[in-house]
Every structure is written in structure tokens, then in C-alpha cells.
Design a protein around this nucleic acid. Structure first.
Length: 474
DNA sequence: CAAGCGGGCCGTCACTGCAA
DNA sequence: TTGCAGTGACGGCCCGCTTG
């Protein structure tokens, strides 16, 4: 797992220490309970296992339960596995973002800060198998963990559960660490508090994640009681780099997932960068003004004026109209050209900004247009559906009218064929007196689309009943 | 690998509008 | 009227890409 934004030396320094820890574990010194172990370790043992490959390291680490990551955050748990993949995706994203930021900052004086940040990440995110150096076991300050056992905020020279967190100040052998690594460590330690502060002040790390991280840190510290010289000796073997990177990837993903903590620092860096650019522009303007001011010296002006048989007066400040009168034609031309160069630059700059703004506006309008088109399509679809329903209603109404007409026709025919004269007489007595009432009573059972299906199955008697008033009125 | 081509950047010229 | 800022136009140079 290589992070392109990390400075190679810094990564190497961090990986060197981590690799040495892994090597020491592989050599059998997996339980370090006190400082005595440190002194009792043999460098020869480390030298013997330097050619250790990735598979061997994983086998050894897997065989030691105390070194193995807990099941809750290992691949044994499918859920965590999925989470891990997500975290790794976030890591990639954050790495890209950091790469961009680093690329931006690399051109400025802030590059050292950026690289220090990233290197700090690399050192802090190590897994127990490839733990970071005890020289820089700086852990993000836990969010309000009063008296919590997880509160392992690093204090140089302080011990937590008897584990020395900073061998650079407590272990005499640390002096033998290579100067290159020491320089990198110093650079990292200078910036670590900023990151820690940013992490503690601006981000909210979930408790589970924090516990996982702290568990890693604890394991790291247990493994970290190794002579730095041994670490350095192991780290010199390039064959171990791949194994180190592979082993650090898991814990790295855990902590890098909290990378938003770096956002405030990156924003600050960007703001500083913009401020620096403004200062550079101002300096450039001042330089140009200085050139303009220095070009027509009074002596030269006097000489030129004498040649031109014109009066020689004291030169005024640049920009004043009287100054150019005293300058020679060539001087005036040079000054004009210089001003025009600057003006042309400004104009092009302005033009580019304008074009960019236009492009942004165009992109925005395109997006907005697409949204509106989609909305129009939706509304048209709704309209079409409504029109279909209206047509259906019209069709149903017509059908009802036709059925009513049929009923009417059937009723007109029915009395002559099927109804006896007596019934007609009786019914005629109950019939409404006026035709208006007859029509109203007929229309009373207004057929609805739901009742429309019942109309065709109306019996002849019902039909005749419905038609009786009509017959009576007729 | 050299030639051609296109794009970007820069310097310069010419012109316009504004202000002293 | 004069100086100056702003800007379009033009040409030169450089760089990257494509092509034969």
C-alpha cells in the first residue's frame, strides 16, 4: 500500500520501525513485559530473520493470539470486512484528496507541514503487526475520556502501564537510530500536535472506531519495546517493505477513515497559500513600480533634456503626468511598454476569469436545463394520463346514455308486448301527474360508471318499471 | 524521429474612453 | 490636450501531440 503523497523518506522511516517490530515478533520476542526484554534481545536473532517474506510474517503473527487483531475488526467478521472495504475506499478518496493538497502545497513553504501531516498519518495508523515506532506513537486525543483506560495521550517520556511511549527520551539505545530517521521523526513530532488538536477539536470519531484504534495502539506499544537499532537493522532489508506495507494497511484504513480531521488543517493551508499568492502579486506590483520609478533618473533626465534643449526639472514620482515630459522618448516608450505588459497580463487574467465564470455558468445552466426538461416530461406524462382518464369518462358517459336510450326504447316496446292492460292501468294510477316528475324520477337512479355495469343485466321487469312513468306520461 | 499542427502564453501595437 | 488604463489584434515562441 503505497501512498504517492507521502514523502519517500518519511514513509521509509515509518516503515522501517514497523518492519523491525514485525521482525522482532517473528523472532520470538512477542511478549515484552518490561525493559529487561529490550536489553536481553539479541540483534543476531533479528539479522537471522531479515529475509522474512510476507507469508512468513503473516503466519507468525497469526499464530500468536495476543498479536492477532480481535475478531470484531478482522476478516473473520463479514460485516467488518464490508466496513473495511468501505474504509479502504474512503482511504483512497482521502489519499487522493491529500495528494491533491500535497501537490498544491508542495510548491509553497507549507509543503513541509503537509508532508509532516501525511507522515504522521502513516506512523499513527499502523497495525499491531507492523506497528509504528515508539518514537512517534502519537495518538489522537480521545474525546473526553476522563480517567478512561483508553486515555493514552502521548506524553514524552511518560509511561502507560509500564510501557515506554517515547524511547527517544528513555532508552539510551535510541541514540543509535540513524540520523535520517531521527530527522524525519523530529519533523513529524513538530506537526503532530496540530493534527491531534484538529482531530480532537473538529471531528467526532465513533466510539467503536476509537476503541479499535486504541486497541491497536496498545498492541503496538506492547510490541514496541524493541531496541531502535534492531529496528533500523531490519528495516534496511528492502525485502520487508512489501510485507510491512501489507501488514499496515488494515490499521491504516481504520485510522485514515478518520481523515476528515485533516480537513481543517488543509483548509488553513489553502488559505495561507492564497494569502501567499496575494503577497506575491503585491510584491510583483511593487517591483514593477520600483522599476518604473528607477528608470528615468534625474541625471538621465537632465542629460536627455539638455540634448533636447528642453528644461530640466526634478523628476516627479512615477505615474504623474509631468514625469514623462522630462523623459526621453525611449524612456517613455520603455515605461509605456512595461505598463502595457502589466496591463496586458491583468487583462488576460481578467479575461480568463471571465471565461471560466462563463463556463461555470454554462455548466450550471445546462444542468438546470436538464432538470427542467425532466420536469416537463413528468408533467406531460401526468397530462397525458389525465387526458386518458377524461376520454374514458366521456366514453363511459356516452355508453350510459346509449344504455339509457336502449332502456327507453325497450320500455316503449314492452307495454305493447308483455304488460297487460290492467297493470298499465294500475301503474298509471301511481304514476306522477306531470311529465316533469316522471323524467325526474327516471333520472333519479343516475347511472354512475360503477352502476353502469349493472345496467345491461337489468331484468325486463325492472326495465319495464323504469319505463312505466314514461309510458304513463306518454 | 522529424515535420506539421494546434493551443497557450507573452510582448507589442493600435485604439478607445476617462480623468486631470 | 495629455497621460493613462483597458483591451482587441497580431506575431513570435514554446510545448505537447499526431502522423508519415
Amino acid at each position: 500500500m503505497t501512498h504517492p503523497t507521502y514523502e519517500d523518506d518519511t514513509v521509509k522511516a515509518a516503515n522501517d520501525v514497523s518492519a523491525a517490530i514485525v521482525a522482532a515478533v517473528a523472532a520470538g520476542n512477542s511478549t515484552f513485559t518490561d525493559e529487561g526484554h529490550l536489553e536481553s534481545m539479541h540483534i543476531e536473532a533479528l539479522d537471522a530473520i531479515e529475509p522474512l517474506d510476507t507469508a512468513a510474517i503473516e503466519t507468525i503473527v497469526a499464530g500468536n493470539p495476543s498479536l492477532k487483531r480481535s475478531a470484531e475488526d478482522d476478516e473473520d467478521d463479514m460485516e467488518d470486512s464490508v466496513k473495511l472495504r468501505k474504509l479502504q475506499e474512503e482511504v483512497n478518496n482521502n489519499t487522493n484528496a491529500a495528494a491533491q493538497a500535497s501537490g498544491i502545497l508542495s510548491s509553497s513553504t507549507l509543503s513541509s507541514h503537509t508532508s509532516a501531516h501525511t507522515s504522521t498519518n502513516n506512523s499513527t495508523h499502523s497495525s499491531p503487526h507492523a506497528s509504528s515506532s515508539p518514537l512517534e506513537t502519537h495518538v489522537p486525543t480521545p474525546p473526553a475520556t476522563d480517567g478512561s483506560p483508553m486515555d493514552v495521550s502521548p506524553t514524552p517520556g511518560s509511561d502507560t502501564n509500564g510501557v515506554t511511549t517515547s524511547t527517544s527520551t528513555t532508552t539510551p539505545a535510541s541514540a543509535s537510530v540513524s540520523s535520517t530517521i531521527s530527522d524525519k521523526k523530529k519533523a513529524s513530532q513538530e506537526v503532530v500536535p496540530e493534527v491531534v488538536a484538529a482531530a480532537a477539536g473538529t471531528t467526532t470519531i465513533s466510539e467503536s472506531s476509537y476503541e479499535r484504534i486504541m486497541a491497536d495502539v496498545e498492541r503496538i506499544r506492547e510490541l514496541a519495546k524493541i531496541d531502535p537499532t534492531q529496528l533500523a537493522s531490519y528495516s534496511t532489508n528492502p525485502n520487508n517493505q512489501a510485507a510491512i506495507e501489507q501488514l499496515t494497511s488494515s490499521a491504516l484504513a481504520n485510522v485514515l477513515a478518520q481523515a476528515p480531521a485533516l480537513a481543517p488543517s488543509l483548509q488553513t493551508a489553502n488559505a495561507q497559500l492564497e494569502q501567499q499568492h496575494q503577497q506575491e502579486d503585491e510584491q510583483q506590483q511593487k517591483a514593477i513600480q520600483g522599476i518604473l520609478a528607477s528608470m528615468p533618473t534625474p541625471a538621465e533626465n537632465a542629460a536627455a533634456a539638455a540634448q533636447d534643449s528642453s528644461s530640466s526639472q526634478d523628476d516627479d514620482a512615477p505615474g504623474k503626468r509631468s514625469s514623462n515630459r522630462d523623459a526621453t522618448n525611449d524612456e517613455r516608450r520603455q515605461r509605456r511598454l512595461l505598463r502595457n505588459r502589466v496591463a496586458a497580463k491583468e487583462c488576460r487574467k481578467k479575461k480568463k476569469a471571465f471565461v471560466k465564470e462563463l463556463q461555470d455558468t454554462c455548466a450550471f445552466l445546462k444542468e438546470e436545463n436538464a432538470k427542467l426538461y425532466k420536469e416537463i416530461e413528468e408533467l406531460n406524462a401526468k397530462l397525458t394520463l389525465g387526458a386518458m382518464r377524461a376520454d374514458e369518462n366521456v366514453r363511459l358517459i356516452k355508453e350510459v346514455e346509449e344504455l339509457n336510450a336502449k332502456l327507453t326504447m325497450g320500455a316503449m316496446v314492452a307495454p305493447t308486448n308483455h304488460v297487460s292492460e290492467e297493470e298499465v292501468t294500475v301503474k298509471a294510477d301511481d304514476a306522477p301527474s306531470s311529465p316533469v316528475e316522471a323524467t325526474e324520477s327516471e333520472e333519479q337512479p343516475e347511472p354512475t360508471p360503477q352502476s353502469e355495469t349493472e345496467v345491461p343485466v337489468t331484468t325486463t321487469e325492472e326495465a319495464s318499471d323504469a319505463a312505466k312513468p314514461v309510458v304513463a306520461s306518454a
